[in-house]
Design a protein around this nucleic acid. Structure first.
Lengths: 148, 148
DNA sequence: CTCGCGTCGTTCATTCATGAAGGGTAGGCA
DNA sequence: TGCCTACCCTTCATGAATGAACGACGCGAG
């Protein structure tokens, strides 16, 4: 009942705030779709990078790729470890470093989450034509490009 | 150093995730600009609605207009009250209800915050032409319209 | 070799958000 | 009048993110 998109008479809101709001709404929608799988967007991010990297990464690497601070990754991995989706293993090459390694169960959960997420994204963007999606992509590119 | 837009080789990320990411980046940028004033986007939201409503609103109304849950507003107002920007006063017409009323200091802070925020928004969107901004606005409209 | 500095992960305090549970109040209806 | 329901706010537990402070480890300069 409390979707970030409900009761929002903020059509007069500035474009920047509207962008913020749209992003939050999209995030909420995906988060809901992930709920039945027992995952969140934050957790999906970790699992995605682990899978992409083979099966494990140092926590610092993870923080960099998620563009968030280390302490956040520490806690994220704590929860994932409690869920049994990830294990902490010592880095053979550097005793300061700790590797997060995805488990078999983690791989299964990730696969299920990726399907749910893809479905949700299709539902969200379904009403935009291919041309409009390309337009939006380019505008976002320009927005990021500016920030050099 | 940890801008959400740095080191982001996620150009291959889906459009939905890119939208999410752009929204977060914009939020971060505005948040930084608000920092010197001692305000956050969440607090600005409360103050903005109070000013727009004259000077006070029941907490429930505030929750609805911010599209968030009540318990969140309770805590937000706690912090704003500690900052001296808002005061809780009993609602004369309904003893269940509590009004949040902006203080003089709150008005001053809000004015300063609004200036900083406007500057940041101009800086963020400055590289987009008027036409592009209109395009983006319309695409976001379409995105929200779909969610009926 | 040792000292100092930089890096790595963790812990803690704080902010923001959600949802469940609980207590006080308003108001209709028996 | 008395009660029951519906509403308003608060409290608590949890998740996610940040930044400061800290102990442990690696490494190059002296």
């Amino acid at each position: 009942m409390n979707d970030a998109s409900e009761n929002t008479p903020c059509s007069g809101g500035s474009l920047a705030l509207r962008l913020l709001h749209s992003g939050a709404t999209v995030g909420d929608r995906i988060e809901r779709s992930l709920e039945p799988v027992g995952l969140s967007l934050a957790k999906m991010g970790v699992l995605r990078h682990l899978v992409a990297a083979g099966d494990s990464l140092p926590l610092g690497q993870l923080a960099e790729r998620l563009s968030c601070v280390r302490s956040n990754v520490t806690q994220l991995v704590d929860r994932l470890e409690a869920d049994g989706l990830v294990r902490r293993v010592p880095d053979p090459g550097d005793r300061r470093s700790v590797l997060a390694r995805i488990t078999d169960e983690g791989r299964r959960s990730y696969a299920a989450g990726a399907r749910a997420q893809a479905d949700a994204e299709r539902e969200i963007l379904g009403d935009l034509s291919d041309g409009e999606q390309a337009q939006l992509t380019e505008l976002l590119d320009r927005l990021e490009a500016a920030r050099v």
